[in-house]
């Protein structure tokens, strides 16, 4: 008997894949979901080959409200889930506020789809299990460069806080992770102003926060301090920063 399944929604995400590897190494079996069938399958093969865990790979589109139903229908026997990780996210180079299609995608993928997936999966999560929502420091103070992304992540953060309040200690633990810059597909080629953190270390940091039962955590930790300062910065100064 293994330790049960951890579901990774967004299996092709850099951080999602690193978390999958982390939990597989810890002895969990892994349920993977993503919209690119062959790529998700390859991630699954990697986990099975490296860590000899059981892997279910499910091909899904985040564009539908049937997400959780479809997920469980095509992966019978995985419930009760020990954990659920929401790793989907999209940050557009173009201004999402000026483009209806981008706006819809951004708010849906970064927020709406997460709610649809998590709410649908909740009945299948073990009461002692965990839910991880990968949110972002971009949700803590709106910035000119990506405030639609930031606003969606702020919504996700608030959603996670609400869930935790709802369970109030009876039910799965929800950890909202406020990620700083990670060296991932999303940030490669972007000028993030600083080198991104190593995904493996980030995954370990997230798992630590989950194990401690934190409802919110900055990963890497130093982002807690950076954001503390940034949130307190008076507008007169903040507005002059091009960050």
């Amino acid at each position: 008997m293994g330790k049960g399944y951890v579901a990774i929604l967004g299996a092709t995400s850099t951080v999602g894949r690193a978390l999958a590897a982390h939990y597989a190494r810890e002895g969990f079996d892994i349920l993977l979901a993503g919209r690119q069938e062959d790529e998700v399958h390859r991630v699954g093969q990697d986990l099975a080959t490296r860590y000899r865990c059981s892997v279910r790979a499910v091909h899904l589109d985040s564009d539908s409200f049937d997400y959780p139903q479809a997920l469980l229908a095509s992966a019978s026997g995985v419930a009760p889930l020990r954990g659920v990780v929401w790793a989907l996210g999209t940050m557009h180079a173009a201004a999402a506020e000026a483009d209806a299609a981008l706006l819809r995608t951004s708010t849906w993928v970064n927020f709406g789809a997460a709610v649809a997936a998590v709410e649908g999966l909740l009945p299948h999560v073990a009461p002692s299990g965990f839910i991880v929502l990968l949110s972002s420091v971009a949700g803590e103070r709106g910035r000119a460069r990506n405030y639609i992304y930031g606003a969606s992540k702020a919504a996700l953060t608030t959603y996670g806080a609400g869930l935790n309040h709802r369970f109030a200690g009876h039910g799965p633990r929800v950890t909202v992770v406020q990620l700083g810059v990670v060296d991932s597909q999303m940030t490669w080629g972007m000028d993030a102003g600083m080198p991104g953190a190593d995904p493996e270390e980030v995954a370990a940091g997230i798992a630590r926060a989950v194990a401690k039962g934190r409802s919110r955590a900055h990963v890497p930790k130093r982002w807690g301090l950076i954001m503390f300062v940034l949130r307190l910065l008076p507008e007169a100064i903040f507005n002059r920063l091009r960050i």
Binding site: T12, Q36, D38
Partner: peptide, 9 residues
């Protein structure tokens, strides 16, 4: 430098 993580990319 392009650093793809997926074959599609």
């Amino acid at each position: 430098v392009v650093r793809p993580e997926l074959v599609t990319r």
